[in-house]
């Protein structure tokens, strides 16, 4: 009897199915970003679903680089759909929290099923994103004191929303694993 395995498609680790699934996570981030923007206009609120889907992506494909791929695809899709007025900064805005989530996954592989783990990662990744635009503000001549104050306020809101969004992830991941819809991430060298 022969076992047929899936072909590796991207970055020597992702199968095509996994890559498409991660790309859908990017689609959801973009969709929710567009929708929320229209209704709420609250600072940092887009981090609610951004962190949710980034952490979910880690749960779907528990491999190093999965969330980074989501961040990359989200920024490029945002640009294509006209949501990337900030230019190259939009890349950093999504890649930075994504890389942090990947790093957390590398250090603590099973964190997505822990509410505390998701909360910590969600808050921290959201906070760092708030500092992305400080470079531009410094170039424009904003005083350091104001930059720090603004960044703190921004970080506070982003962290709050990101943390709230991340809390729902463990329950969803557990339910999907229980129903055999996603792997539990314990097989092989997933973080290679």
């Amino acid at each position: 009897m022969e076992t047929k395995t899936e072909r590796i498609y991207l970055w020597r680790r992702f199968t095509l199915r996994e890559a498409v699934l991660l790309c859908f996570c990017a689609t959801f981030i973009v969709l929710t970003r567009a929708g929320l923007r229209l209704h709420l206009h609250m600072p940092g609120h887009v981090m609610f679903f951004t962190m949710f889907f980034m952490l979910l992506a880690r749960g779907f494909v528990p491999k190093l680089g999965s969330v980074t791929l989501v961040g990359l695809l989200t920024s490029l899709t945002s640009v294509l759909l006209g949501m990337g007025a900030s230019g190259p900064i939009v890349l950093v805005k999504f890649l930075l929290p994504a890389v942090l989530v990947d790093l957390a996954g590398f250090l603590v592989p099973g964190f997505v099923t822990s509410a505390l783990g998701c909360l910590a990662v969600g808050v921290f990744a959201s906070i760092t994103r708030a500092g992305v635009s400080t470079g531009v503000e410094y170039l424009m001549g904003m005083e350091e004191e104001i930059i720090i104050g603004k960044a703190l306020i921004s970080a506070g809101f982003s962290g709050l929303w990101g943390g709230l969004g991340s809390l729902a992830v463990p329950a969803i991941i557990r339910r999907l694993r229980l129903n055999g819809l996603i792997d539990d991430g314990t097989e092989g060298s997933l973080d290679a």
Partner: peptide, 10 residues
């Protein structure tokens, strides 16, 4: 390809 699929499925 992934970027285009992401846009296509919005």
């Amino acid at each position: 390809f992934l970027v285009f699929v992401s846009v296509r499925f919005v």
